[in-house]
C-alpha cells in the first residue's frame, strides 16, 4: 500500500465513487435504449407527444447517429449540465429539478434528523433492556412501522388527521393565496409539513430502532463490556462509553446505504401529500410520460446517493481508529 493513513483511505474512496458515478452515467444511457428498436417507439404510442417534442428528443439524443457517437454526444451534453429538455415544461430538466430541491431538502432533513435521534435512542434502550417487556414493545412497534410502505402510512395519516379530524391540511407546502409573510408563512409551512414529516419519521425511525437495537445487542455481548463491568464502572458509563460508542459505528455506516431507501420514502410521501419536491416531480413525470425529467431525476438521485455514501465513508474512516491508521478496512 503506497498511501497510508486517512489520506490514502480518502483517495481510494473518492476514486471508487468516481468510477461508480461514471457507471451510473453509462447505465442511464443504456436503460433508455433497452427497448428493442428506436427508443422513440414508445413515445409514438403516447398521443400526448407532439411532433415538436419528437424533434427535441431526436436532437437531444442524436438518434440517427451510430451508438458510439450517440454515447459521446450524451457525455458531452452531460458535461455541460444538459440533462435534456422537459417534454412537459419545455425547459431544461435540470432547471425543473433544481426548482424542487429546496422543498425536498427541507422535508427530508427535518424528518431524518428527528427520525435518527429518536430511532437511535429508542433502539439503544431496547437493546440495553433486551428480552424485557420494554424491548419487545419497542421492537414490535418499530418492525410494524418500518414494514408499512410509506405511501400507505401517508394515506392512513391523511385519512385520520386530514379527512376525519381536519386538523392538518390535505397537502401542498403552504396555504394558497394566503398572503402570509415572515413568521406566519413559516408557521403555515410547518403546519403543512407535519404529516409528511411524521410519515418519514415513523418509517425511517422504525428502521433506526431496529438497526441500533441489533448493533447494541451485538456490542453488549462483547467481552469488553464484561471488562468494563469488572472495572466497577457505573452502568451509565458502560452504556455511554463502551456499548453505545461501539454500537453507533455500524449505524453510521448503514446511514449511507439507507439513503437509497430514503429516496423511496421521499417519492411516496411527497406524492401522497402533494409536497412540491423532487419526489412529487417523479410522480408528475411518470403521469406526463416526461422521460427526460424522469431520467434526470434518476441520475440526480443516484449521484446524490454515491456522494452521500462517500461522505459517510469518510466520516466513518475518521471516527473509527481501526480504519484511520490501518488504511485498510
Amino acid at each position: 500500500m503506497a498511501l497510508k493513513g486517512f489520506a490514502g483511505f480518502a483517495i481510494r474512496k473518492v476514486g471508487a465513487a468516481c468510477i461508480t458515478v461514471f457507471a451510473i452515467v453509462c447505465a442511464n444511457f443504456v436503460i433508455f435504449r433497452l427497448v428493442p428498436g428506436d427508443p422513440l417507439r414508445m413515445m409514438f404510442k403516447d398521443p400526448r407527444v407532439s411532433a415538436e417534442q419528437m424533434q427535441l428528443v431526436r436532437e437531444r439524443f442524436g438518434l440517427d447517429k451510430p451508438l458510439g457517437e450517440q454515447f459521446l454526444h450524451y457525455l458531452r451534453e452531460l458535461a455541460h449540465g444538459n440533462l435534456g429538455i422537459s417534454f412537459w415544461q419545455k425547459r431544461p430538466a435540470l432547471d425543473v429539478i433544481a426548482d424542487r430541491v429546496p422543498q425536498t431538502l427541507l422535508l427530508i432533513v427535518t424528518a431524518l434528523i428527528i427520525a435518527v435521534i429518536l430511532g437511535t435512542i429508542l433502539g439503544a434502550i431496547a437493546g440495553w433492556k433486551m428480552g424485557t417487556r420494554t424491548d419487545s414493545v419497542i421492537l414490535t412497534i418499530a418492525l410494524s412501522l418500518y414494514s408499512i410502505p410509506a405511501f400507505c402510512m401517508g394515506i392512513i395519516l391523511m385519512l385520520i388527521f386530514a379527512f376525519q379530524l381536519s386538523i392538518f391540511p390535505l397537502g401542498g407546502i403552504s396555504t394558497a393565496a394566503s398572503g402570509f409573510t415572515g413568521f406566519e408563512y413559516w408557521k403555515d409551512v410547518a403546519w403543512h409539513m407535519f404529516l409528511p414529516a411524521l410519515c418519514v419519521v415513523f418509517w425511517y425511525g422504525g428502521e433506526y430502532v431496529l438497526l441500533t437495537r441489533s448493533a447494541m445487542v451485538d456490542a453488549l455481548g462483547q467481552d469488553y463490556i464484561i471488562t468494563a463491568r469488572a472495572k466497577g464502572l457505573k452502568e451509565s458509563a458502560i452504556l455511554k462509553n463502551h456499548a453505545l460508542r461501539n454500537a453507533l459505528l455500524p449505524v453510521v455506516t448503514i446511514t449511507g446505504v439507507n439513503l437509497a431507501f430514503a429516496v423511496a420514502g421521499i417519492i411516496e410521501v411527497e406524492t401522497v401529500f402533494s409536497w412540491p419536491g423532487i419526489g412529487r416531480l417523479v410522480y408528475d413525470a411518470v403521469m406526463k410520460r416526461d422521460y427526460p425529467v424522469l431520467q434526470a431525476t434518476f441520475l440526480v438521485f443516484a449521484v446524490a446517493i454515491v456522494l452521500a455514501n462517500l461522505v459517510v465513508d469518510l466520516i466513518y474512516g475518521y471516527i473509527d481508529p481501526r480504519i484511520k491508521v490501518g488504511g485498510e478496512e
Partner: peptide
Amino acid sequence: MLPQLPLMI
C-alpha cells in the same frame, strides 16, 4: 448502490 425505487420506476 443504485436507488431502488427510481430504478424500478
